[in-house]
């Protein structure tokens, strides 16, 4: 026998189930209970940076979009700083008007999700290498046993994307495209479209983080 390592074990994940809205976005479940609700509106009039909309669908292995998925995103501010004490980058300032986090469900009718946020800046990655602007996604739903992590990159950042240390970890260059959102400038606010494909052809690259 040897001494024991006294680490605890991580709690097992379970599906968020079909009624995840009750706990996390009760208005979508159909009732109003909290004074303060967490939403998909991440920027206010004082937030620095370019206003953008991110929208898309979450698609299953049969090609059907999920109408009961819940998504959260986490991102740096316009200067590339995360609003968190462990971000000690000396570039840029924390933006008091930007938490950098949002939550929403895919629509019960249209199956589309949508975030109103700002475009993040460049964040320094491991070994001092810059990461192209990106938004971190976490997706849960009925039928998803453990939350899926992925990243969205910006289609108009081609040079930064080509140098991005994470995108370059993806062995099959073709699959990198699954993480790059296309920009649509036809409306008042630019829209980045980002579909997440859970399975099959064009399956999104998910990360074990």
């Amino acid at each position: 026998m040897v001494q024991s390592l006294e680490y605890l074990k991580e709690t097992a994940s379970q599906t968020a189930g079909p009624y995840v809205h009750i706990g996390l976005i009760p208005k979508q479940a159909g009732f109003d209970i909290f004074e303060n609700n967490f939403t998909n509106i991440m920027a206010d009039e004082n937030t620095r940076g370019e206003r953008i909309i991110i929208e898309g669908r979450v698609i299953d292995g049969t090609g059907t979009p999920l109408r009961d998925a819940l998504l959260e995103i986490w991102q740096a501010n316009a200067d590339g700083r995360y609003n968190h004490e462990l971000d000690r980058q000396n570039t840029g300032e924390i933006d008091a008007n930007f938490r950098g986090w949002g939550r929403t469900g895919t629509d019960f009718d249209t199956a589309v999700y949508r975030f109103e946020t700002i475009k993040p800046g460049v964040v320094t990655g491991r070994n001092g290498r810059d990461m192209a602007p990106h938004v971190n996604f976490w997706i849960v739903a009925r039928g998803i046993n453990i939350g899926l992590n992925t990243r969205m990159y910006f289609g108009d950042e081609q040079n930064a994307n080509e140098a991005d240390p994470v995108l370059n970890l993806i062995e099959q260059a073709e699959r990198r495209k699954t993480l790059i959102a296309t920009r649509d400038d036809s409306g008042a606010v630019p829209v980045y479209r980002f579909d997440i494909v859970l399975q099959g052809e064009n399956e999104t690259v998910f990360f074990d983080i």
Binding site: H84, D87, F207
Partner: peptide, 28 residues
């Protein structure tokens, strides 16, 4: 055994990613 997981589960291996600020920080 949990039927809904069949069409909603990725088939490719997840890409292992060492933590950067994007993973080690989070909302407060």
């Amino acid at each position: 055994i949990y039927k809904t997981s069949v069409a909603r589960s990725p088939r490719q291996a997840m890409l292992s990613l060492q933590g950067s600020l994007s993973e080690t920080t989070g909302p407060v």
